[in-house]
Amino acid sequence: MSKKTPAVDIAEATRLEMYRSQYRLREAEQRAFDLFLQNLVKGTSHLSLGQEAIAAGFATAMKPGDLTFCTYRGHAHTLARGVSVEKVLGELMSRDNGLMRGKGGSMHLTSVEHGVMGSYAIIGAHLCIACGSAWRAQYQGAQDVTTCFFGDGTTNIGAFHEALNFAVIWKLPVVFVCENNLYMEYTPIKDVTAVPQPAADRASAYGLERILIDGNDADVVYQTAQKAYARARAGEGPSLIECLTYRHSGHSRADPAKYRPEGELEEWKKSDPVKTYRARLLSAGVKASVLDAIEQEVKKEVDAAEVACKAAPPPPADLMFTDVYADGGCAWRN
């Protein structure tokens, strides 16, 4: 992995878009945590604080129509595809204005109209499901690419290995993205994995290139994503990309992350993706006022979302009995 800043040939407008995206994910996640502290998020939630560059970099490299599959740690990936903060926070708060009107919750954010095909909470399954989405594209001669995000811990379940082999033998247009944040829930990934790099070191077993990148650098993420998407669209098959990153918060909302060695968080905060990207744009000549304006716009969206969600009613009780079956209802007998 190269830590040095790449010679960037990314358009300034694209980089500003990635800054906006990262800043927005940061603000939205922080607000989600605030709302939890106010006891307004009663279900579980898993934040991506510190991992924003991956979601922003990939989503910016995607084209409309490309499909995203992510995990229960999926707020960032959902927002990065353009879903409103209000819909995400509303879902976390079990309000009628939520993305699924409260029926899915934080772990299952889905917005088909934005290409977000679901957030999956059983480790491993969605790598297989993403294969199917990519197979459909190949079958129908469509140009869309499927991206599947998952954690380091996911590389030790059988479904990960089945999906990789499957995607390779069928040459599917799918990009597997491992967000290696060094921990599964509370156990360090290095304590439970046969190889140092849980995804990258497995690539060769499936005849894939070993790709290990700095997941806190949106430019690197974006350029790596572009390459993988070009390969997929050219019919050359899947890619497996391991992105090194770190989550700033605990595994889930109530986890104080006491298991982390002292100083580790502070060390990783030096490469906080949002802050380092801001500094990079400034040193590349972007005016502070431009970035300030982006930040103000984002804050406005998040503030308005909070107000709207606090005012929104809960879903009607009978909504819970809808959409078990395609007829819209839940009848299992006549």
Partner: peptide
């Protein structure tokens, strides 16, 4: 798991 998942992903998308 792979082919059950692949069937589901394909079903979801057409």
């Amino acid at each position: 798991q792979a082919f059950m998942g692949a069937a589901m992903g394909a079903a979801m998308t057409g």
